[in-house]
Amino acid sequence: MTEVSVVKDAVPAADDLVVLKSVNKHFGALHVLQDIDLTITRGEVVVVIGPSGSGKSTLCRTINRLESIDSGDILIDGKPLPAEGKALARLRADVGMVFQSFNLFAHKTVLENVMLGQLKVRKTDKKQAEEKARSLLDRVGVGTQADKYPAQLSGGQQQRVAIARALAMDPKVMLFDEPTSALDPEMINEVLEVMQQLARDGMTMVVVTHEMGFARSAANRVVFMADGRIVEEAVPDQFFSNPRSDRAKDFLSKILHH
């Protein structure tokens, strides 16, 4: 296998929102992230793809420090990611996260899920928080479900609530960790449509996904990872029609032709 050198887009440094510099992480003996360098500019939609076990979910989770790193630097909006405590909590409030398994708070209603962060972290007053929560729920198309509990909703609805919950914090960047992987096929589109709309609205997004259609249509840049490394970065058209690395060609041939 021939390694192809990673090509990066030249971007003005002032607009760099998320910067990872030679990030390394091990899970025991497994070197799951190897010298990761990645810069995400404001308003950019970056889709991370790659075979399972390539470290893409871990990469996504390091950005709000749900996973710690062994070495390297992560900067959000110019500031280094704090290790713990109040500063970390504050930073996490600015980084929205959507999980594969939705993780809506099971003992709270949909509305309470979307209000909680505003009330407890942003200290918004209750009326304002509810107004915002309801308008966000309408925006993702689940406004009528506001008073139900998460378990009463379909997977697609739950994931859209989870997106609303993250948006309620007015995040600078949204992280999506395989947001459609736990969904029944007919529900994938309703979630992707919400994400497409977000991307069009100019939200900065990092999306780990297997949805190549979404990558093609919504991404500004595709990052291909394998074995803990970023193997290739390119604009979607170029990546899908003319991948440079053998690893990416191999991966694409497996997922696109059947």
């Binding site: 749900l66 909590a89 996490r92 929205g96 999980f99 398994s101 993780n103 919950r165």
Partner: peptide, 29 residues
């Protein structure tokens, strides 16, 4: 589930808030 605490941390709740608002109420039930 671990995801409950992760989601709570991800919206910026502190350790004690995660425990008081998300984990313990579910644990008690």
């Amino acid at each position: 589930p671990v995801g409950q605490a992760e989601a709570a941390r991800a919206i910026g709740l502190s350790f004690s808030q995660v425990l008081r608002i998300i984990v313990l109420p579910q644990a008690f039930r």
